[in-house]
Amino acid sequence: MNLELNVHTLHYSQVNRILRKAIEEGKVNFKLYGVNGHRYLAAGISKKVKIEIYGTPGLDLGAFMKGPEIIVYGNSQDGAGNTMDDGKIVIHGMGGDVIGYGMRGGKIHLYSDAGYRVGIHMKAYMDKVPVIIIGGKAGDFLGEYMAGGIIILLGMFSRYPEKPIAGLFLGTGMHGGAIYIRGKVKESFLGAGLKPYPLTSEDEKLLETHLKEYCEDFNLNLSEIFKADFIKIIPYTHRPYGKLYAY
């Protein structure tokens, strides 16, 4: 029930058509070679299949998808997991900007650095709690407008030793969810009204569960990660605009 394919000369639309057809025929394991900027791979696919990608997928990898597990052996361009509903994206390299925009479920595990505007407006509902784990560093606006879900930022496997672990405007307008950061961030980098908090024992349990899976994905040592302390950033109110208006 496998399909291996070199997509080097194919248009993204063709690749997605082939994927969809093969999924309909019952195939569940895919290996795509020669991926080179192909956009929208697995966009909108709602089956629990496994897609291994060799190369660099383009814009909006797995956008709107509901179920697939995608493993990228390489870097990924902007928009991975855009408005993703369920499933998992594992990237063995760096990711671009706007990862997990409006994400409502599933997981994104990124080994190295992420770009700007990651995890904007993630949201959670009932048992659907999306998780983004970034092994490297993140750019500005991480978790802006966040309404739910979990972002974990490790800052360990970065190509940019000179950069701070997270950029400016961290969590601006956040009104749900939590951002965990290994190490410290300057308070001036946080969105207005936000403060770092120490972890509770519940937080630690939650981190352990998520990071254990992360370590398995990348063959890492969990105890290494826990050698430094984490901080937690949560919204200061669930209604940041509650008092904005005059009636």
Partner: peptide
């Protein structure tokens, strides 16, 4: 909407993508 009861539903000014 898939958001908790009683929470504000905020749509940012731009699509951030």
């Amino acid at each position: 909407r898939m958001i908790p009861v009683g929470s504000d539903a905020l749509s940012p000014a731009p699509h951030h993508d």
